[in-house]
């Protein structure tokens, strides 16, 4: 029955989507598709500008890594592991990345919700949807000894206090608020971890954060 390395794709009629939540977090958002909203004209330079608005619900499918999304909703971390070489992946890879493993299919493994900070930064500016959260710490964390790291926020910490190699734990949103994405959880310092003393570098980071904190306070 075919090549075991292939990703299985259920037939269109084989998927019933019996657990539908597509409107669960929609709020007041209405799909309007594309629409012309108005125009501006500059008489001096004879320049004409048309305003459009585009609003469209779309989706991606997790496909073969669907267990990851379902796991997030349930409050579980699922990664994958190559049965040949033992490499562990989070986020999961369906096929091993080692050419010697010849695209071997990985197995699902449940991971502990702990990790080690590989590197991090203090974000003081970001995309429109994240501006009010600043300053926040974004870290690349190696979860449960995997061979890869994943980016997410570290909360419950002063922005200047994270350290390379510090232990972190996963904290989940309340179940009713989970959407099956990486925003269902974040990292926090592991129990028992204590921030080190202030250093000149941390003082420098703290000073850089102050205008950002003040700027965010002026936002509605």
């Amino acid at each position: 029955m075919g090549d075991k390395r292939m990703h299985k794709i259920p037939g269109h009629n084989d998927i019933k989507w019996d657990d539908k939540n597509s409107d669960k977090f929609r709020g007041d958002i209405k799909e309007t598709g594309i629409g012309f909203m108005g125009y501006d004209f500059d008489s001096a330079t004879e320049q004409f500008k048309v305003f459009l608005h585009y609003d469209q619900l779309y989706y991606w499918k997790y496909g073969e890594v669907s267990k990851l999304g379902k796991g997030f909703v349930e409050g579980e971390f699922w990664g994958t592991q190559c049965p040949k070489c033992g490499d562990k992946f989070f986020p999961p890879r369906v096929n091993c990345w080692r050419l010697d493993c010849n695209l071997e299919r990985s197995d699902w493994i449940k991971l502990s919700e702990t990790g080690i900070v590989h590197t991090f930064t203090i974000a003081g500016w970001s995309g429109k949807s994240s501006l009010k959260r600043h300053p926040f710490v974004l870290a690349y964390v190696i979860v449960d000894g995997c061979n890869t790291s994943i980016a997410n926020e570290i909360r419950n910490i002063e922005p200047w206090d994270p350290e390379f190699g510090m232990p972190v734990k996963v904290v989940w949103k309340p179940k009713a608020e989970r959407q099956g994405t990486v925003t269902d959880w974040w990292f926090e310092p592991a129990d028992g971890w204590k921030a080190g003393p202030m250093t000149p570098e941390k003082e420098r980071m703290k000073k850089l954060c102050q205008p950002v904190i003040e700027w965010v306070q002026t936002m509605k």
């Binding site: 991606w60 997790y62 986020p91 590989h118 590197t119 991090f120 930064t121 974000a123 500016w125 970001s126 995309g127 949807s129 994240s130 959260r133 926040f136 974004l138 870290a139 690349y140 994943i150 980016a151 997410n152 926020e153 390379f164 994405t181 990486v182 925003t183």
Partner: peptide, 27 residues
């Protein structure tokens, strides 16, 4: 621009390119 990253695991977490680059640059 962040939508050019791996949207499943990166853009959603509030990351934009200057943030990814900063994490790499700091190390």
């Amino acid at each position: 621009i962040a939508l050019a990253s791996d949207t499943r695991y990166e853009a959603l977490a509030g990351g934009i390119y200057p943030i990814y680059y900063a994490a790499m640059a700091y190390k």
